[in-house]
């Protein structure tokens, strides 16, 4: 068990170091997330009082898009230079490789959210910095990173992979996204923790079990 966690830690550390040197994922995803917020502001033209009402929707659409880019980039970077074949040749188990990738995406997305949440609360004039929203973000990001990693592992193999990931990913992730939007709205209206959080927890737990197994099946080929 400790050896397994050690392997996961090494894999995560490798990706983090790569990111510290290149900074290509975090910076591009961050800029993209802000752009989505900007586009929404122009499209919806929120009046001063409306920011809080629209904030959950804008926040989660922006995070869903930027999250999709994060999981794709994390995988494509490995794929482009034949790194994945290399990883599969090492004694690291398929589960460790999967959890390493998922954890990396999870950390990247949390880092992006840590910047976007304060930025959005200023831009949209909505108090997005609360415990309720923080827990929502962690639960949503966990499920997003887990399923996203599995589906990007499939999507990078297919033709027209840029479209394949969202087509596969969004219908299945939808309950998590609804939960995140509703739970954030609940927190914004001063309600604290919502009943959506347990549902999101169930979603995360289910796919944390299923996805590593499915990843192993894909990589057997």
């Amino acid at each position: 068990m400790t050896q397994f966690l050690g392997t996961v830690a090494v894999l995560v550390w490798k990706d983090l170091k790569l990111e510290f040197r290149s900074r290509d994922i975090l910076v591009s995803v961050l800029v993209f997330g802000l752009l989505v917020a900007l586009l929404f502001s122009f499209a919806l033209k929120p009046s001063p009082g409306e920011g809080a009402r629209l904030a959950p929707a804008i926040l989660w659409v922006a995070l869903a898009f930027s999250g999709t880019i994060t999981v794709t980039r994390t995988f494509v970077r490995e794929q482009e230079q034949g790194g994945l074949e290399g990883l599969l040749l090492t004694p690291a188990s398929r589960d460790a490789i999967f959890l390493g990738k998922a954890l990396t995406s999870f950390l990247f997305m949390l880092a992006v959210e840590a910047v976007l949440l304060p930025a959005f609360s200023a831009l949209l004039a909505a108090p997005l910095l609360s415990a309720g929203i923080a827990v929502t973000a962690v639960l949503a990001t966990l499920g997003f990173a887990t399923l996203g990693t599995l589906f990007s592992a499939i999507a990078v193999q297919t033709r027209s992979r840029e479209i394949m990931l969202p087509v596969l990913f969004f219908p299945i992730i939808l309950p998590l996204l609804i939960g995140a939007v509703e739970s954030s709205a609940h927190a914004l209206s001063g309600g604290g923790f919502s009943r959506w959080l347990p549902l999101m927890g169930v979603f995360d737990a289910l796919f944390l079990v299923l996805c590593p197994w499915a990843f192993g099946a894909i990589m057997e080929e």
């Binding site: 299923l210 499915a214 099946a217």
Partner: peptide, 21 residues
């Protein structure tokens, strides 16, 4: 193999989709 994975994950997702909606 990919279709099988989507078939399993998708089916597991159906009850959650139903409750959330």
């Amino acid at each position: 193999v990919y279709a099988a994975v989507v078939g399993i994950i998708g089916f597991a997702d159906v009850p959650i989709v139903y409750y959330s909606v």
